[in-house]
Amino acid sequence: MTALDTTRTSSVWFVRSLAKAMRDALSAGSVTRMLVPPRETVEDAAGTKFISMPAVSPDHDLYVNKVATILASPVPGRGATVTALVPMFSVSTGRHLGTLDGATVTNLKCAAVTALVTDRCAAPDSRVLAIFGSGVQARQQFLGVSAVRELAEVRVWSRDRTRTEAFARDIRTLSAAAGAPVDVVVCDSAEQAGRGVDILSTATTSATPLPVPSELPAHVHINCMGAHTTESRELPAGLLRASVVVVEDLGTAIAEAGASHAHALELDVLVSPASAGFARRRTVFASTGCAYLDLITCAHLVSHTPTPTHA
């Protein structure tokens, strides 16, 4: 497996550079030239899912396929319920180039695409971020948003108070290490956390809409990153209807998140004149994931990882 400097790649600098690589790929049209079939999911009788997400890019000379298993419930003593790997091949030679850890690719991709969308949609003077959730993806939300906005306050809320307080400590440590300490507030409710914020990030496993406060500012930007299906979602349907919704891929969003996303715009709108004025409107990034972003992330990781030397 290809070795990565995880300290370096999880930095704000790396997230910014990966977000720029995504923006450049969208601007140059290399994303439209990729071959990205729908993801395949096979589920067994026990509820375990086996997932395949391939993508081929002639511009990057790269074929990747993120493959994963998702257990229906934890196995005692076995740790995480998700295991993922991303083998990489050269398009021109067919040669196997290495295999990356799927969790690393996913986490960095989510942080970087959050940075890209937030930078194009959130008001330039946004200073207050609320995060619903306290897991791995919640951490990526802080990393992605803080890469593009100078935050003064971060409010955190989740249903597990202990995990929320631990997450708040992590944010304080991360922001201090980056030389940009922020005020972190652990909130007692989602309503308290979200009231009057500039940016709201949701990263939960909730199958029912979260109690998003009704008095969200008209310019608020929302990153909706949690798992959702055609029957379940983190945000109320009315909030989606009243917002400009951006997705990675429209076909995937409709198939996996339902018809409520039928009028969404794809990511490439963010690099076009059509995005002018988004910072003054209510915007929602409703992420369902797409393999073309995994491919760009893999290409960026490989190009920024030193080649091992042998004595």
Rank of each mutant, 00 (worst) to 15 (best):
P273S: 02
G277A: 08
L239G: 08
D268W: 06
S275Y: 04
V271I: 13
V284S: 07
A190S: 09
E234Y: 05
L174Y: 03
E191D: 13
D268T: 12
A193Y: 01
R169V: 13
D198I: 06
P217Q: 13
D170V: 07
A178D: 11
P181D: 05
A274F: 03
F285H: 02
L239E: 08
T205A: 11
S275E: 11
L240V: 05
L235D: 00
A227K: 02
R172E: 15
D183I: 11
L270N: 08
S272A: 05
S189H: 06
A286I: 07
A237T: 15
S214L: 08
E191H: 05
S175V: 13
E256Y: 01
A178M: 06
F278I: 04
G258Y: 03
A255L: 12
D188H: 08
S189F: 04
A176K: 14
P181V: 07
V197T: 14
D249E: 12
A276D: 13
T252G: 12
E248K: 02
S232E: 06
S201Q: 03
A177M: 06
A276P: 05
G277W: 08
A193Q: 08
A259E: 14
S189Y: 03
H219L: 10
N223V: 01
G196L: 10
A180G: 10
A218V: 10
R169H: 13
S189E: 09
P236W: 03
H263C: 07
E266T: 13
I171M: 12
V244R: 15
G258L: 06
E248S: 02
D268F: 05
A207L: 11
L200T: 02
P209N: 11
S189K: 10
H221S: 05
I199K: 07
C224A: 15
P273M: 01
S214G: 11
V185D: 09
G226E: 02
V220K: 00
P211Y: 01
E266N: 09
P181E: 08
A190R: 00
L200S: 04
D268Y: 06
L235E: 03
R241C: 05
S275Q: 14
V269C: 09
A227T: 04
S275C: 15
P236G: 12
A176V: 06
P236D: 15
V185C: 10
D170W: 13
S206Y: 00
D183M: 14
V186E: 07
H263T: 10
V197F: 07
E248L: 01
V220G: 00
E248F: 01
S243Q: 04
S201G: 12
A255Y: 05
L270Q: 07
V271M: 06
A227S: 11
A257Y: 00
C224L: 14
A193I: 03
G196E: 14
S201V: 04
S287M: 01
V185N: 07
T230K: 14
V184T: 10
S206N: 01
A259L: 11
E256P: 02
L174R: 14
A264S: 11
A253E: 08
L210F: 03
S232H: 13
S287W: 00
T208D: 15
T204S: 05
V184I: 13
P213L: 04
A190Q: 03
A178E: 09
